[in-house]
């Protein structure tokens, strides 16, 4: 009896989950908390489409999941170098992005870039930089160079935190040392390792979680971080922090909306991309997310300006992370493993 009930219940569940693949659905797999909830609600109201949202915290999570054959997602949000990898690996659907209304809203400087030369696969939705933030209650010195962070003075001993994975951190060290991104030269990468090893005694933690509290509350005095997050913690929580503008440059990223291969609701996904890119909605998104927008905004309503959010308007050069060859990636992993061995 109970067994029968259980079987029936499972059958019913299976039937339900199959129905969930049908028309009128849109399944997003995007950076955690990256799209304004009110836009999701609005899209559902306007189109009658039921939207579900899953979040991830690193490009690697997304790539790994798609490679492992995750199905059921209609829209993903990879950064530029992962757009490139996913296109090359055949993981994205050709949606002829240049023909979408959204494409007309994209700032021409973001069109036809190396990660999607023909604009077939992706529409950018947000961009920004990775650098470091200092807590001004703890550290009063200048923040015009990566040397403050990578070769810290006594004042910052034991008060520095980095991310728990190498992607942007190694990029920043490369900018500081003048080593090209994705270097396949072991000598150059050895220099990166030496720099990080020498910094390690001053490092309190290598962790990517809970950064707001750690730097805002003064648990550490300097933290590797992103522009928009730093800005929001300063503006919304009143934290006395400053996002550095190191003269050697910042590590750039740009996230795009793209459709994974085999998605069930491609038309809904395209409709959502167009929806996100109208000036009105893009501005709502900008005000929520706090990262720069590659599509045109309604400047009368846009909350962040160079005056109140200097974090978003870098005054130094920005170098975008590349899709590294396996040889170069191995060197990055080697640096990181030896650093933390």
């Amino acid at each position: 009896m109970t067994l029968k009930t259980t079987l029936l219940a499972s059958a019913a569940l299976l039937a339900l989950s199959t129905a969930a693949r049908a028309e009128g659905e849109l399944h997003l797999y995007i950076w955690s908390d990256s799209i304004a909830p009110e836009l999701i609600t609005k899209f559902e109201a306007e189109t009658g489409t039921k939207v579900t949202v899953d979040g991830y915290n690193s490009n690697e999570d997304l790539l790994t999941k798609l490679q492992a054959g995750a199905t059921g997602y209609d829209l993903v949000m990879p950064s530029q170098h992962f757009v490139r990898i996913m296109i090359d690996q055949g993981l994205l659907e050709d949606i002829d992005a240049a023909s979408l209304a959204a494409f007309q809203q994209v700032d021409p400087k973001w069109r036809g870039q190396w990660w999607d030369e023909t604009n077939d696969y992706s529409i950018p939705v947000a961009y920004g930089t990775a650098g470091y933030t200092v807590n001004r209650d703890q550290y009063k010195g200048a923040v015009d160079s990566w040397s403050v962070f990578f070769e810290p003075s006594a004042e910052l001993q034991g008060k520095i935190a980095l991310l728990s994975y190498p992607d942007e951190v190694v990029g920043a060290a490369q900018l500081y040392l003048g080593v090209p991104f994705c270097s396949e030269n072991p000598d150059e990468m050895k220099k990166v390792l030496d720099l990080l090893m020498a910094q390690k005694p001053s490092v309190a933690a290598y962790t990517s979680d809970n950064i707001e509290n750690r730097i805002g509350g003064g648990e550490v005095a300097a933290h590797f971080w992103w522009d928009g997050n730093s800005m929001k913690t300063r503006a919304n929580d009143g934290a006395n922090i400053e996002y550095a503008m190191p003269k050697e440059g910042l590590v750039g990223w740009i996230d795009s909306l793209a459709v994974p291969k085999g998605a069930a609701n491609i038309d809904n996904a395209k409709a959502f991309i167009d929806f996100m890119s109208t000036p009105e909605n893009a501005t709502v998104q900008y005000n929520y997310y706090g990262h720069s927008s590659p599509v045109a905004l309604d400047l009368a309503v846009a909350k962040y300006t160079p005056e109140n959010a200097p974090e978003l308007f870098p005054t130094v050069k920005v170098e975008f992370s590349r899709a590294c060859s396996p040889a170069a990636q191995d060197l990055v992993t080697k640096v990181w493993t030896q650093l933390l061995q």
Partner: peptide, 12 residues
Amino acid sequence: NLIQTQFGGGRN
């Protein structure tokens, strides 16, 4: 963490 690194950023 080592296993996590290899499946994620390490791409191995």
